[in-house]
Each structure stands twice: as structure tokens, then as C-alpha cells.
Computed example of a mutant assay.
Amino acid sequence: MLSRDEAVAAASEYLKKKAYPEKPDSVVMLPETGINYAYGWTVRFDFKEHIETGDAAQAPFTSVVVVPHDGTDPHFSPTYLPVDHYMELQASGEWPHGWPPRKDR
């Protein structure tokens, strides 16, 4: 299982090298926001330009990165679901959303 520091480092690398390679210096990690779930960590981030100006147009579209405990690549959760619900679906094995159906229902 990853520590918060390891999750923040993995999220930062993902953001700077894969998600936003054109603006790695703009990514500001918010490690104190890390939440540990059964499936993995969620870590928030922001862009330096948004922090400095407060201009919503400078903010990231989604500001949460998911870092799975199993070592698979960090990723963004779907924006149509609350993050808590997405993490619950992942942990229960019901992702993608409701598939496969749980046997106890």
C-alpha cells in the first residue's frame, strides 16, 4: 500500500509528464488533501496561474488525481460521479459503473 507521500509523487509525475506535459511548472500539488480509500489515494492539485489570479478559467477542469494502491497508473476519476462514489465502485469491483453486477444482489 502506498503512503501519502508516494501517492503525491506518483500523481505529480502523472500530471507533469502525461496529463499536462506542456505546462509541468504550472502544476501545484496539494498533499494535505490526500485521502486514502480502499482502492487508492485521491490527491488534489491546482495550476499556479489559478492560485495566483483566482481566475476560474485558469483552473484545471478536474482537480483530483486517483492513485491506485495496486500500482496501476494514476488517472482522473470520471467527472460525472462524485469521487467518493467512484472510489467505492472501484473497491467493490463494480467499475465500470455497475458492471459486473454484484453476486450478492
Rank of each mutant, 00 (worst) to 15 (best):
L2M: 15
D5Q: 15
D5K: 15
E6Q: 15
A7P: 03
A9H: 13
A11S: 14
Y14E: 08
L15Y: 00
K18H: 09
A19F: 10
Y20E: 06
P24M: 09
P24D: 02
V27Y: 03
V28S: 01
V28T: 03
V28R: 05
V28A: 02
L30G: 02
P31D: 06
P31W: 03
P31K: 02
P31F: 03
E32V: 08
E32R: 09
G34I: 04
G34K: 01
G34N: 09
N36R: 12
A38K: 10
Y39P: 00
G40Q: 05
G40D: 03
W41P: 01
T42C: 05
V43S: 01
R44W: 02
H50E: 09
E52Q: 13
T53A: 07
D55L: 05
F61M: 04
V65C: 03
V67M: 04
P68L: 05
P68E: 04
H69Q: 11
D70F: 04
D70I: 07
G71W: 09
G71H: 06
G71Q: 09
G71E: 08
T72M: 11
T72G: 10
D73S: 11
P74H: 10
H75G: 04
T79H: 03
Y80R: 11
P82F: 01
V83Y: 03
V83H: 05
Y86E: 00
M87K: 06
E88P: 07
Q90Y: 00
Q90G: 00
A91L: 12
S92R: 13
G93S: 12
G93D: 13
G93V: 14
W95T: 13
H97W: 10
P100G: 11
P100M: 13
K103S: 13
